[in-house]
Write a protein that binds this DNA or RNA. Structure first.
Length: 516
DNA sequence: CTCAATGTTGCATGT
DNA sequence: CACATGCAACATTGA
């Protein structure tokens, strides 16, 4: 019992399946659980709903730590400035944290590790955010991330099952460890309120998905009770526009690490046990493997959140069109299905996966021809489950830039929603302005005769916008532009010298030598 | 090397 | 209602 340890919470806002925390408790005399409000991550681009989820999760974590006679210390500032001060002040000898593969996190953690060394602090980190050690997946695929799900499955099956989650520490585990906290802890290190952080909470909507580990495990329990539903789950068969979510909405909890992906995986395995059940890619296990797939790609592909200098991303001449972008972001494209989804996104912070497909295709290759990077920023701000790797990966997928290439398959902003919601109840919920339109016009109100618009109390072009584009026209044009981008891609692709006879320049020859 | 099969979730129209 | 086909047609993978 000689160590004074900081466990640094970043993601992984939980006590269950937290191997770094357990490692920190080993021979630990004094434990300081710390969360740093890093302005690089938590700023204006981090939306209000996300802030609420984060603050809720931190409150929950503090509450759970109290039950272990410990406390959470919220510290404001940049990690590189915060830690040297804390190392000295608390006479720290050990720092533990969960491994994080985001580029910013990797450089941040390297900086803090160097500072720790300077202060004689031992650093221990553990993999627990993902099912597997992502680096091992890349190694197993000859140093490159798999670009298809099939390939990913093959690699993962070689690695065997994910590790079993480890239990949360108990009072018994921590009985020789204390957390020194003063009377003014709340003042100095307490979890701030949204108000204190300067957020205008007057217009915030009802909290549908409260943050925190306790809430996460409760929701997991509830879903795992639905044996039939879990065993029959097929993602493409779930509805993007049901009034209640047709999927689990456990994603925000996994994103912030309130719920361990491995805990989720093994609870599903228990439900599946001895029963006929769906399989990846469409099953719930399959969803966790998709997460793993994009995490692997994001670690193995440079500049993964950009088109430029991203070696696997098709280079497309997207338009710079601030008016169209603003209309999309602010739910005034004139396509009720699209605008309803964008409204749900803004107010509730969660939309169904296929709803994301519809609005992402619409913004990029389908209709507005705006870069996926712009959409990525909006999702990053507004989605409770906004995750760097998944967001970048899925935007590339939907824009047919990477992973997915059948760009002639275009979602219709009118037809797609009708398949699962003929009467447009979803649209009526999120765009009440349109609620009096009869079902035959609810997806295309501009086609309604003037008399119908008057009866509905909503004149198109005045009370609700006319459609921004003619879908059928721009769809055809955009497929042409995609064809062009792909042709350029094939032409630019470096080919073996034997195939391109006489084109092997001295430059490329020397490059080959350099690269071995 | 070539070539065929495959790819989580398109749409409209037909049987 | 489930399934098949044309639309115009891509990259990756594995044999």
């Amino acid at each position: 019992m000689s160590h004074t340890c900081i466990h640094w919470f970043r993601k992984g806002l939980r006590l269950h399946d937290n191997p770094a925390l357990i490692a920190g408790l080993k021979d630990c005399k004094e434990l300081y659980p710390v969360f740093v409000l890093d302005p690089y991550l938590y700023n204006k681009a981090f939306g209000l709903n996300r802030w609420r989820f984060l603050i809720g999760s931190l409150r929950d974590l503090d509450c759970s730590l109290k039950k272990l006679n410990s406390r959470l210390f919220i510290v404001r500032g940049e990690p590189k400035d915060v830690f040297p001060t804390l190392f000295k002040k608390w006479k720290v000898s050990k720092l533990t944290y969960e491994y994080d593969t985001e580029p910013y996190s990797l450089s941040r953690d390297q900086t803090v590790t160097e500072l720790a060394k300077e202060h004689g602090v031992e650093v221990i980190y553990k993999v627990s955010h993902t099912l597997f050690d992502i680096n091992r997946i890349i190694e197993a695929n000859n140093g490159k991330p798999p670009l298809t799900y099939k390939r990913m499955q093959a690699i993962v099956s070689d690695l065997g099952s994910p590790k079993k989650p480890i239990p949360a520490p108990t009072v018994n585990d921590i009985k020789y460890t204390s957390t020194p906290s003063s009377k003014d802890h709340e003042e100095k290190f307490g979890v701030p309120t949204l108000d204190e952080l300067g957020h205008d909470i007057a217009s915030i909507s009802e909290e549908l998905f409260p943050g925190g580990e306790v809430e996460a495990l409760k929701r997991l329990d509830e879903h795992m009770k639905r044996t039939q539903w879990v065993c029959n789950f097929e993602k493409p068969q779930t509805s993007p526009n049901s009034l209640m979510p047709s999927t689990t909405v456990l994603s925000p909890y996994v994103t912030f690490g309130c719920l361990s992906a491995r805990t989720f995986w093994w609870r599903l395995a228990e439900v599946y046990q001895g029963k006929k059940h769906s399989s990846p890619p469409v099953s719930l296990h399959g969803q966790l493997l998709w997460r793993e797939f994009f995490y692997t790609a994001s670690l193995g592909i440079p500049n993964f959140n950009k088109m430029k200098d991203n070696p696997v991303c098709t280079q497309v001449d997207w338009d710079n069109n601030p008016e169209f972008l603003a209309a999309w972001r602010e739910a005034r494209t004139g396509f009720p299905f699209i605008d309803a989804i964008m409204t749900q996104l803004r107010t509730e912070g969660w939309i169904h996966h296929l709803a994301r497909h519809a609005v992402a295709c619409f913004l990029t290759r389908g209709d507005l021809w705006i870069s996926w990077e712009e959409g990525q920023k909006v999702f990053e701000e507004l989605l409770l489950d906004g995750d760097w790797a998944l967001n970048a990966g899925n935007w590339q997928w939907l824009s047919a830039s990477t992973f997915f290439h059948q760009f002639f398959r275009v979602y219709s902003p009118v037809a797609f929603g009708k398949k699962t919601d003929k009467t447009g109840d979803y649209i009526k919920k999120y765009l009440p302005l349109l609620k009096k339109f009869p079902p035959q016009y609810i997806y295309e109100p501009w086609k309604a005769p003037r008399s119908v618009q008057q009866a509905a109390g909503c004149i198109i072009g005045k009370d609700y916008p006319k459609p921004l584009v003619e879908h059928e026209v721009v769809r055809k044009k955009n497929i042409q532009r995609m064809t062009l981008a792909y042709a350029k891609r094939s032409a630019d692709k470096p080919e073996s010298p034997s195939k391109k006879q006489g084109l092997s320049s001295p430059v490329s020859a020397s490059l080959e030598l350099t690269l071995g």
